[in-house]
């Protein structure tokens, strides 16, 4: 076993890869150095949760890594449907997305989505925003379904089970789980503890809990302990891989 002092000596910046050290001690290091490794193993037909609200909190580099990786026939879960020609819009334009689950696809510059939609080349599942986030929260918490008053009596509740509880009607909604989540964060450490920046946090923390494989794009990588444990937003247990995308590169 490693005593405390030896561990401190061993702990350097960005400890390389998961490794076995003396006996049973395992260094948990979720940091992935190569862009291609960050998204390796994503299969065709996957459901991919993508963080962001408008342009804030979108993991643009990971989306482009996924574009290069080649997975297709994807179901993308994202609040909006991308704008311009980068990020989700690029994935849409390349025809990688069969189906999109979102609350508000339309926005200034959502040209790629709008064209596919008008041409009938993409399936849209429109979900109320709170139901969308709650379905992922449920998936992350092991809850298979829940009742909500949102959408009762509307087209979006058609075909769904409705149940009266204490005199009010509720719609049954099912958990929404991802095979993969792509999340943008401000800071991460090698255990995958995360903090976010302002309203770029949005869907990141809930999506991180709701996928089998959670991949994070972080602006800064810090040492274990540098993030005050009182302010960790996403504890590392929810995170599988962390890829460093400095702010300058992300802006380019």
């Amino acid at each position: 076993m490693l005593d405390g002092a030896a561990w401190q000596r061993h702990k350097g910046p960005l400890i390389v890869q998961l490794q076995y050290i003396w006996g049973s001690v395992v260094a948990i290091n979720k940091i992935v150095e190569a862009r291609a490794d960050a998204v390796s193993g994503v299969k065709d037909g996957s459901t991919v949760l993508i963080s962001g609200f408008g342009a804030a909190g979108v993991p643009t580099d990971l989306i482009h890594a996924l574009l290069d990786q080649g997975a297709r026939d994807l179901t993308v879960v994202s609040n909006n449907a991308g704008t311009g020609d980068r990020g989700l819009a690029a994935l849409l334009k390349e025809g990688r997305v069969r189906r999109i689950v979102c609350s508000y696809p339309r926005s200034a510059g959502s040209v790629a989505f709008d064209e596919l939609y008008a041409a009938g080349k993409i399936e849209l599942e429109l979900v109320p925003q709170g139901t969308l986030s709650e379905r992922m929260r449920a998936a992350g918490a092991g809850i298979p379904a829940f009742y909500t008053p949102t959408s009762v009596g509307t087209q979006l509740a058609e075909g769904k089970e409705v149940r009266e509880i204490d005199g009010r009607e509720y719609v049954l909604e099912y958990a929404l789980k991802g095979d993969v989540a792509l999340v943008q964060a401000e800071k991460a450490d090698r255990w995958g503890n995360l903090v976010y920046n302002k309203s770029a946090r949005n869907f990141g923390p809930v999506m991180a809990t709701a996928a089998d494989l959670t991949i994070v794009e972080a602006r800064q990588i810090v040492e274990l302990g540098e993030i005050d444990p009182e302010i960790v937003v996403t504890p590392g247990v929810f995170v599988d891989r962390v890829f460093h995308v400095p702010a300058v590169a992300a802006a380019a």
């Binding site: 429109l126 109320p128 139901t131």
Partner: peptide, 21 residues
């Protein structure tokens, strides 16, 4: 949330949640 225009995607956002909650 929708004008049911087939060329113009609908957008519900948080409107139904706010209306209910």
């Amino acid at each position: 949330w929708t004008t049911e225009n087939p060329k113009f995607p609908p957008g519900v956002g948080g409107a139904m949640d706010l209306a209910a909650g």
